[in-house]
Design a protein around this nucleic acid. Structure first.
Ligand code: FES
Ligand code: FES
Lengths: 141, 141
DNA sequence: ATTACTGATACTAAAATAGTATCAGTAGGA
DNA sequence: TCCTACTGATACTATTTTAGTATCAGTAAT
């Protein structure tokens, strides 16, 4: 069972790379792809998605590329998961109508949802900013 | 993003059905399949797996079928997830060697693992026994 | 013997994930 | 102006995972 897919992985890495740029500096998809060893075309699609979700901004033409739109600390991993893996949720619903009559106050459902919200909440504590800090701290030590 | 797959879903439902049997009573895969509206052949494979993992016992031949091997309260959902979805884990490892030099004390890795263990721990609080109790309680109310 | 079952395993289908290719358009610079 | 390096958009293929089906051999109750 994997909690994070490649989409999310690559997105996070791209965002981390962008987060280490100087103010108003842009980095091309090609560059990001090479630095992070991420398939170029795949990365491009991911970046498009990140634009749609207002996480990054692009500049077209030569010397163009991408940069962050939001502060690193305000970009939560949970948000990225949401974008690429959809909301964490019980697939449809175990124990369909048959077993579980009054769906609304089904205890299992509640418990699953509680677990899901714990996961979401934990992933929201991790941000691009905090990761970047951790990574640079590590390089130093 | 789904936390539970059909495998797990069906397994849990089968186990719940078996948990409601009388002591030493056996129920056939066909019966379980019909009661729970689960595809027969698929369910059979799942039951085979549950046998291997020592969760159920079978009796061959006419009038045969399956029954639980363990007490319902000792069958944790986390265990079932493990069987059918594998251990919860960070796919391979985001930020391969390149980004993350000393893998052993990588902070992100630690955080992910912490989240994973929370999930596992929460799912281990839910058991076939507790679900059965919840379900019967609900029918009553 | 017939029937209702499990054991084992091979197979196909569908869906999700991962990765590739292509073309149109934009902007910087020789 | 034309070339080049870039993004926007989208269509496509491949791979993997998940879901579901089929088949045959063997067991035991009737
Ligand atoms: S588990 Fe879905 S309604 Fe109860
Ligand atoms: S995230 Fe994998 S070693 Fe750090």
């Amino acid at each position: 069972m994997k909690l994070l897919t490649k989409n999310t992985d690559y997105a996070v890495r791209a965002l981390l790379t962008l987060a280490s740029l100087k103010k108003d500096e842009y980095l091309s998809a090609r560059q990001i792809s090479q630095r992070q060893k991420v398939p170029y075309q795949y990365l491009r699609r991911i970046l498009q998605e990140l634009i749609k979700k207002n996480l990054v901004i692009s500049r077209e033409g030569g010397g163009g590329g991408f940069r962050l739109k939001k502060r690193p600390n305000s970009i939560e991993i949970s948000g990225i998961i949401n974008i690429f893996q959809g909301r964490i949720q019980l697939s449809d619903c175990m124990f369909r109508k048959k077993l579980c009559h009054n769906r609304s106050n089904c205890v299992l459902r509640n418990q699953i949802q509680r677990i899901e919200s714990i996961v979401a909440s934990e992933f929201s504590k991790i941000t691009i900013g905090s990761l970047l800090k951790d990574l640079t701290k590590q390089k130093g030590g």
